[in-house]
Design a protein around this nucleic acid. Structure first.
Lengths: 151, 151
DNA sequence: AATTATTAATTGATGTATCAATAATTACCT
DNA sequence: AGGTAATTATTGATACATCAATTAATAATT
């Protein structure tokens, strides 16, 4: 039994990462499919960036990349696409010409508002059958893993 | 206090996905950096595919994509790269010409053996400070989310 | 003030994700 | 047997991830 437990730990070590990966990917697919089925063209990654800009106006790309936990290069390219799609505008900052001021357009605000009716439902669906305690523990585990892995 | 709990639940709903995403991405970065620092050229996704092929010889691309939870298109392209890098070989199946037999080369076996000494350590580091019970609950939560999101 | 260092954004190169469409081959059918 | 359906792999198109290198502007230093 003791030996058995040891084996299980070994196995769990390898399985937990697989399950985490699977959970987040399945959720992404699910949420993306819902958005698309309601006629929204936007990706959930783009949604996240726009959300971040709405909640933190005047934020720099730099800081966005920290908040959404994406590489600066990724954020830059995502913003390129969002500017092309008329969801954002970029203007050079007056006081520091290295920086860019990023503005959220009305088109983006409208799209976000429409999507805000779907996304909480998606989350609720994804979390069906879980207790708050389980979710809290899972969240704690995720936080710990992230913290263990960064230096 | 009751109201407070409700707010927390709302917030947790949105935060848990963010934390999951952050955990798996931080782990991937961490594990990848370790492999690279030991001179291994391979990515962890490629590692996963090769591992899968070693444990399930004669498996089709089809089935690989289910096991590693990746799109068939992704797996196809990953195998292309792995064939170029001489880690795998592809041959048309004799009895069903739609299928491909995929062979793991000695080069891949050697690389895998070398990496097998690092990967358990990586996992252990990533899971430091967590009890088995927490890990089990987290795993359960991940499984449930995946199950809730697929249809 | 001129040099050096730092910072913010961008670009290049390579790998992966996802959906949709297309071969090519085999199975099914009646 | 001949046509239809299903299966396996592949390709096209677009988006994101990651590291490394570069550019442009500002800050710091001597």
């Amino acid at each position: 039994m003791y030996y058995n437990n040891l084996l299980q730990v070994e196995k769990l070590d390898s399985i937990i990462f697989y399950k985490i990966d699977r959970a987040i990917r399945t959720y992404r697919q699910f949420a993306q499919a819902r958005l698309r089925s309601l006629g929204h063209q936007i990706t959930i990654d783009q949604w996240l960036v726009i959300r971040c800009l709405i909640e933190n106006p005047k934020i720099q790309q730099n800081e966005i990349s920290e908040l959404v936990f994406k590489d600066a290069a990724s954020v830059n390219r995502m913003i390129n696409l969002l500017v092309e799609a008329k969801y954002l505008k970029r203007k050079i900052n007056k006081s520091d010409r290295r920086k860019m001021d990023i503005l959220v357009t009305q088109k983006a605000l409208d799209a976000m508002e429409a999507m805000d009716e779907v996304i909480p439902t998606n989350r609720a669906t994804a979390l069906t059958g879980l207790t708050q305690e389980e979710m809290e523990i899972a969240t704690k585990v995720m936080t710990q893993i992230a913290s263990n892995c960064k230096k």
